[in-house]
Simulated assay, not measured.
Amino acid sequence: MAYEFEGVQYGKLRDMQEARRARYVQLLEEGLNFTQAAHAVGVSKRTGKVWRNGRTRSNGRNERPLVDWYGGRVKDSTTTVPSRYLSIDERIEIADLSRSGTSARGIARRLGRSASTVSRELRRNAHPADGGYRPHRADQLAASRRPRPKRRKIRPGTDLYAYVAAGLRRHWSPEQISNRLVREYPDNDHMRACHETIYQAVYVQPRGELRRQV
């Protein structure tokens, strides 16, 4: 009888674990990152990794991979998204209205967006398994596609910045500076800047730091 009782208890624990794993999968699909999903279901990040990858546990038992997770970058929650992009609140409203049967044009009118924006959102960020639209997952995917600003080439503290600043003080034109860089540093790709890049560093880059120096 005790053995039967222990078996029942073990079965319940196993069912609870399976439910937590299923919830973990659902949270990832909704857009939470790995840490957030693990904390939400009450497991460690290591356990979540085991569930994702099917790694062998320390007790020798193999765990099958459960999660078809996407490779997008996780969005930083502190990042301010420009207004031209859809916000997470707008995506939640898109999901709610879409599930209620509202057309893309109807959703667009509610949001004050173009119909093409809503149609593209529903098409590009649909879940590959069932075609459903999950707003948090869509927000993460959109963030992963969003172009990141490139690091400025002519920036303070670099040899290139010092060379360009010195050339401008000598009243060399950006074209002259660019040509001299090629002649004086023929094998150093880090000491390269076309005249358009130099013009941008002087007139376009924020705060005009190079222009103030010269």
Rank of each mutant, 00 (worst) to 15 (best):
K45C: 03
P82I: 02
L160N: 00
K75P: 05
A126K: 02
E184A: 15
V214K: 01
A201V: 07
K49G: 15
A104I: 13
P82L: 05
S103R: 01
R180Y: 10
Y85S: 08
Y85G: 12
E63K: 06
N59M: 00
S83D: 10
Y163D: 11
V202R: 07
R109E: 13
G60W: 04
N53S: 10
I154M: 04
E196D: 14
L32N: 00
Q140A: 12
S114V: 02
R148K: 15
I154C: 04
P128L: 03
D15V: 09
R84G: 09
V8C: 13
R64Y: 08
R99H: 03
N53L: 15
R120P: 06
V25S: 08
D187R: 15
S87H: 07
R192I: 01
L141S: 05
F34D: 12
N62W: 10
P128T: 14
G106I: 00
A19S: 07
R73I: 12
T35K: 02
G131F: 02
L86Q: 08
A166F: 09
D96P: 00
V118Q: 00
Y163M: 03
N53C: 11
P186E: 09
N33M: 10
W69D: 15
T158S: 04
E121N: 00
R211L: 13
R46Q: 09
G131I: 10
V204A: 14
E175L: 12
T80G: 12
R212E: 13
P82S: 05
T102E: 09
G101K: 03
R20E: 07
A165C: 00
I88L: 15
H39R: 14
D159Q: 11
D130G: 06
A108D: 02
D68Y: 06
A40G: 00
V41P: 01
M16G: 05
A166I: 03
E6W: 07
A38H: 04
E4R: 11
G131M: 06
S144T: 03
D159H: 15
P65L: 05
Y24G: 07
S114T: 04
Q36Y: 06
Q200V: 06
Q9D: 09
G11Q: 07
Y163W: 08
A142M: 14
E184S: 13
A129N: 07
L97N: 04
G72I: 08
A19P: 03
T47I: 13
Y3W: 09
K75R: 13
A165F: 06
T56L: 15
D187L: 08
R14W: 14
E196M: 11
A138I: 08
N53P: 08
V43R: 00
H39E: 09
R124S: 09
R73A: 11
A104C: 12
R170G: 02
V43F: 03
N125T: 00
A143D: 14
A22Y: 09
G106M: 01
E29G: 14
T102Q: 06
I177L: 01
Y24P: 06
R151S: 14
S144F: 05
Y3G: 13
K45W: 11
S83F: 08
Y85M: 10
A138N: 07
L160Y: 01
